[in-house]
Design a protein around this nucleic acid. Structure first.
Lengths: 151, 151
DNA sequence: TGACATTGGTTCTAGTTAGTACAATAATAA
DNA sequence: TTATTATTGTACTAACTAGAACCAATGTCA
């Protein structure tokens, strides 16, 4: 059996992501939001709003999914759709007053919650983690590009 | 504004995981399976089968979700449920003959596909990645335990 | 200008997800 | 033995997910 040294790395990547989601998501739910909803609120905070296209690129939520997430945030009166003045196809999504108020509450609270997980990390630990993750990400993105070229 | 050196790390973690899922998932779909379905097939391969409880622990799929995933694999005649001889509550999930045949095809093919993403990685790169991810995972697991204790 | 392709957002389908409630069985304890 | 508690898998809800089909608006180019 040839050694597959990448398997433990992938295993750890998946478990690490799941552990992060569990920790982050539990706190987000206590604030009355889902993880994607929080992601949208956080992305729109301190902006004038942005199109579905831009929101999708920032959050990596595909447009079909985004329609539903924005629908539910609109039902909660946290965001609104406004027709784009420059492009008749495009909708601008903005925080409402209530959305801005919620952002001001939950965003710092969630950052503080996340920070607590990193109590023992040194500056070197952060730098090493960032580098390793970038290297991994670049490997997958490059491999994916190769596939698309081949097609 | 105090520096938040953990934010770039979390950003990279999420993007890295998404890049992995995109690369891995696209290949799995070409083989006619979804990612969780592949996960189940891979876990059951070369075993005598296992209970829902064990399957859930190995794959980190919660039991409510697992019922549906197994239902769909059973519809495809890739797995079967067998009553546990030792516990009247428990069901054993096994690969069928067709499931074993599929496992023998898709599992090595997928490993080979994944391996291609790691062309430039050295042994040191793998070790560094594994260590960093373990450190991150442990931080989230510990933080989560602290929450549960407090509750 | 007119034909054509592209883009932005919505809709639809099949599937996954966590969480909760539930029924049947098993384990524990009085 | 009986009462209580825990465990195993299923059913159900609300939400998210990618992907594909679709429509209207825009851009391109001959």
């Amino acid at each position: 059996m040839p050694q597959k040294p990448f398997l433990p790395v992938l295993y750890e990547l998946v478990r690490t992501y799941q552990a992060f989601e569990a920790y982050s998501g539990a706190h987000i739910r206590t604030m009355g939001l889902t993880a994607p909803q929080f992601d949208i609120i956080a992305t729109l905070g301190n902006t004038e709003g942005m199109s579905f296209k831009d929101l999708g690129e920032k959050t990596l939520i595909t447009k079909g999914t985004l329609t539903g997430v924005i629908d539910r945030l609109e039902d909660k009166a946290l965001v609104r759709r406004v027709a784009s003045p420059s492009d008749g196809r495009s909708q601008i999504v903005q925080l409402t007053r209530a959305g801005e108020k919620l952002f001001a509450q939950v965003f710092p609270a969630h950052l503080s919650h996340l920070e607590q997980a990193f109590g023992n990390f040194s500056r070197q630990d952060f730098e090493a983690a960032e580098l390793v993750l970038q290297q991994l990400k670049d490997a997958f993105l490059a491999a994916n590009s190769n596939l698309e070229e081949a097609a």
